[in-house]
Design a protein around this nucleic acid. Structure first.
Lengths: 143, 143
DNA sequence: TATTAATAATTAGCATGCTAACAGTTTGCA
DNA sequence: TGCAAACTGTTAGCATGCTAATTATTAATA
């Protein structure tokens, strides 16, 4: 068993993603969609590039992702006359319904993930994770 | 800023992956290859399905990944007469060279990631992460 | 022994991720 | 004003991820 950070990060990410999709099996969502819905639940009406930055996904990847979600009736893409470059993304009623499912899924899985871990240990873990997030955003071409 | 586990997990994974590829920019490796090399460094001669399980990648995904790595001369895929279903994967000399680069990259990035985090806090973090890995492997279709 | 079941890898088809190159729009400045 | 630069999103082409179905081999069992 390898306890290195990079290996465990890869593992937890793959396992969590799989658990999310199991939990959402009957929701008719593909793997890239829950995170977008989760972001829009908190930031409805965002610009396309804001979602891309917040989720660390390339703008080119967002195009297809949002196109499929628009085709499914989960959201709308809107261009306003003030700035015809920018695309604003809003949830539809159907999209907001799916958001609830996604939120429940994330809440349920987060509880499962921390099973057998005390509140104090969990808080400490999440604090360190927040520091790591900040460190990762800073690192640029070390050495 | 969202401090939920699933959001930070997504973020750290995306950022770490990007940093790995920046660090390996001149190594001629594509994004899926470092983790395979890292596993083979520790488990040379594994069966194909062992790598898939250890890295939590579907066997069907491994096929193409290993084919491209074999074409690049990083490894060999060998079938033995004892069991003609099984495929054994071994690093070539060229593959072992790349492994060194990959190991250096992971070591350097892990240090950067824990910048400003004490040894005690880091140990605690990695212990909790190990517990989380175990929890995630256990969870199967909760609710 | 012959048939069935289980195992290991592959293929096909799709979604999602990337980079590089491009198009359209807006901004800034000569 | 007009041209260059910056900005936003898209397209094309590829790698990587999935599931479902298939092939080939081996094991199990009637």
């Amino acid at each position: 068993m390898d306890n290195s950070f990079h290996y465990q990060l890869m593992l937890v990410h793959a396992l969590f993603r799989a658990r999310v999709m199991e939990h959402l099996a009957d929701a008719g969502l593909s793997p890239g969609q829950p995170k977008i819905l989760d972001y829009l639940r908190r930031h409805d009406g965002s610009m396309q590039k804001e979602i891309a930055y917040a989720c660390q996904i390339e703008p080119a990847t967002m195009t297809g992702l949002l196109r499929r979600m628009e085709e499914k009736g989960l959201l709308t893409r809107q261009i306003r006359p003030e700035n015809r470059r920018t695309c604003y993304i809003s949830l539809t009623a159907r999209g907001r319904e799916k958001c609830k499912r996604v939120e429940q899924t994330f809440l349920a899985l987060e509880e499962s993930v921390f099973t057998g871990i005390s509140a104090q240990e969990r808080t400490q873990f999440q604090n360190t994770l927040t520091k790591i997030c900040a460190n990762m955003t800073d690192i640029r071409g070390l050495q």
